[in-house]
């Protein structure tokens, strides 16, 4: 029972933070709230027994992503978001409400939270849990699935991370050229 209460409270906090992020226009506050959002979601992951995921989310979402977003803010020097004049709120709101209700309609058929007989629980998961110790000798099933059973997948993910690093380095790594610094607005010709 207690974990249900913790779960409900944390999710309510998450919803409040998301609404606050939508309503705010100070970008610094938005980024700090996003950091809180990540930390709360790491708490939710712990309540749902996903320790490895919570670990990563706490280090990545709360630490590295916040630092990178703050660095972007320092580089762009825009502290406040200008309220959009041309956009009317009702069109995106309609799109969001229609999509959201379709998704909620879809959840009515989903097995309830924590159901041990749900289809997701009965196919490959018991196999992994049974075979991890005899086949690999690794107690942490997440590690054995990540590195051994789904090794190709992880190789692909590592390559994606590597490629993203190269792309960031090509885009903004290295010093800016002198003419760019003198004319930060940029020529209309090269825009």
């Amino acid at each position: 029972m207690i974990d249900v209460i913790i779960n409900v409270t944390l999710l309510a906090f998450l919803a409040i933070t998301a609404v606050a992020i939508i309503r705010m226009s100070n970008l610094f506050a938005i980024i700090m709230l996003f950091s809180m959002f990540s930390f709360l979601s790491a708490g939710v992951f712990i309540v749902m027994d996903a320790i490895d995921v919570a670990f990563t989310e706490a280090a990545v979402g709360t630490g590295v992503s916040t630092v990178l977003m703050l660095a972007t803010l320092a580089l762009t020097k825009d502290q406040k978001e200008k309220q959009p004049v041309a956009h009317r709120p009702w069109l995106p709101l309609t799109v969001v409400i229609v999509t959201g209700s379709a998704l909620v309609y879809g959840t009515l058929d989903i097995p309830p939270f924590g159901d041990p007989d749900a289809p997701a629980q009965t196919h490959v998961a018991p196999e992994y849990l049974e075979r991890s110790i005899p086949e690999t000798g690794v107690q942490n099933v997440v590690t054995s699935v990540l590195a051994s059973y789904r090794g190709f997948d992880t190789l692909g993910e590592v390559t994606v991370v590597f490629t993203a690093g190269i792309a960031v380095m090509l885009l903004i790594g290295g010093r800016r050229r002198k003419e760019e610094l003198e004319q930060p607005q940029g020529d209309p010709d090269d825009a």
Binding site: M48, D49, A50, D52, V53, T56, E57, V60, G61, V64, S65, L68, M69, A71, T72, L75, T76, A120, Q121, V124, A125, Y128, L129, V141, V142, V145, L146, R150, D153, T154, E157, V160, V161, A164, G165, A167, V168, L171, I172
Partner: peptide, 28 residues
């Protein structure tokens, strides 16, 4: 609990921060 979604999400989080930083670099 089921380990498979944990594995998928664990890698997705790190890939997510790498792609987010690519987006932020484009913003800069």
């Amino acid at each position: 609990s089921n380990p498979l979604p944990h594995v998928l999400i664990l890698t997705a989080i790190v890939v997510g921060v790498a792609t987010t930083s690519l987006g932020l670099a484009l913003v800069v």
